[in-house]
Nucleic acid binder design. Sequence first.
RNA 1: GGAGAGAUGGCCGAGUGGUCGAAGGCGCAUGAUUGGAAAUCAUGUGUACCGAAAGGUACCGAGGGUUCGAAUCCCUCUCUCUCCUCCA
Length: 429
Amino acid sequence: MLDLRQIREKTDEVRDGFARLGVAVDLDAVLALDERVRRLKNESQTIAAEQNKLSKDIARAPSPEAREAAKAVGAALRQKIEGLVAALGVAEGELETKLLELPNLPHPSVPVGKDDGDNKIVREEGVKRSFSFAPVPHWDFGAQAGIIDFDRGVKVSGSRFYLLKGWGARLQRALISLMLDLHTQKHGYTEILPPFMVRRESLVGTGNLPKFGDNLYRDAEEDFWFIPTAEVPVTNMYRDEILDGADLPIKHVAYSACFRREQMAAGRDTRGIKRGHQFDKVELVKFVRPETSLDELTGLLADAEDVLKVLELPYRVVQMCTGDLSFSAMVKFDLELWAPGCNEWLEVSSCSNFGEFQARRAKIRFKDGKGSGKDGGKDKTRFVHTLNGSGLALPRTLIGVLETYQRADGKLDLPVALRPYFGGDEVVG
RNA sequence: GGAGAGAUGGCCGAGUGGUCGAAGGCGCAUGAUUGGAAAUCAUGUGUACCGAAAGGUACCGAGGGUUCGAAUCCCUCUCUCUCCUCCA
């Protein structure tokens, strides 16, 4: 959510931001509503002050007659206030709805562009493996090795479901462990195992609702929502809290299953395990001081990249242009690994700096000062900046490993980093 | 799922219709005291919004109601705890 004050006082900057995003936003409607809200608030509060004063006078009981007369005046005032407050409520609701649907503004450093064709490839890391045979895509390799069962996945759950079997399942579990171990032991993140179902408010906090509800699964009876990413429960851990500035940055890493409808993408990426309704992911989430957030994003990206480095998988870093930024992001970088079997770059991580956009929605703030943070109110309470990134998404990382380390005989050479999770074995299959 | 109890400021905890934004304690901040610290004493200590300011408004889990006036009375909901039931 954007700062209403910013919209009011720096309207041109905001307008310019939306122009760079390439989205049409009726800012004048927002400003008019804001005007109306403040006017109604002032009017009702003025009368409320009058009313409060009157009530106190009644308590001091001048005479029974005077009291009755004052009561009548009070009743009239109440009527007036009720009318104004009702109008205020409506106006505030409209304003809130509009604000919740405004996307975040891009950081000035983000390259302007129309769509993903204008994204900027920042750099390429690692060396693509050269094969002495023609590498096969993971769907063939996995089926032949008996570790990915597409047919039974569809039988059990429907299209876009599969199941992993034998050493394939173990490989995925090993990858999850490797990522969690790396981020907790080497990069200093605290591990969280979050709920995979959340309540509605949590999704509003991260920006998934109200706008993107049709990509989510939910249990209508209980109004429980299945998380599309661990970002949702982990970011909302600190919803409505005022954190101690001394505790920042807070760094969390969380494994979770993720659930997405992918309605829009029907027919795309249908082969293999690239895109499903359910997938595993290890997610990195940071809560930081505003002035450090750009540097923290660089660090987060490096932490995610480290997984690919440790697995010795070639990848590239892509910066999203303004036209391809997600709703909540201010800056965003993707990591794409090279899949030699499918012969394409696959997005395995998306690292974003949300600025205070999510923090404002979820009311995640911090304050400097020792102990309880109540130090005489000298330090201002401010919104934190939130960041997150995959570290990494499992199915596509699995694709990278399977396609890069495949052998002509249908077995798999294990990357050195994974061997401890297989009792030291160098080959599986 | 059934029965009961509860939800007050950073924490503990008082408060059953007006002088309560809320006693008291803890914690914290500042000052005094000290060679330094502890202890002690004094003062101060919520959030948000409106306003240039003075000041005002709202908030005692959430939402509604009664009343001139609600932390206090009524209704609905949410959450927590205890017991039973069920269950990985």
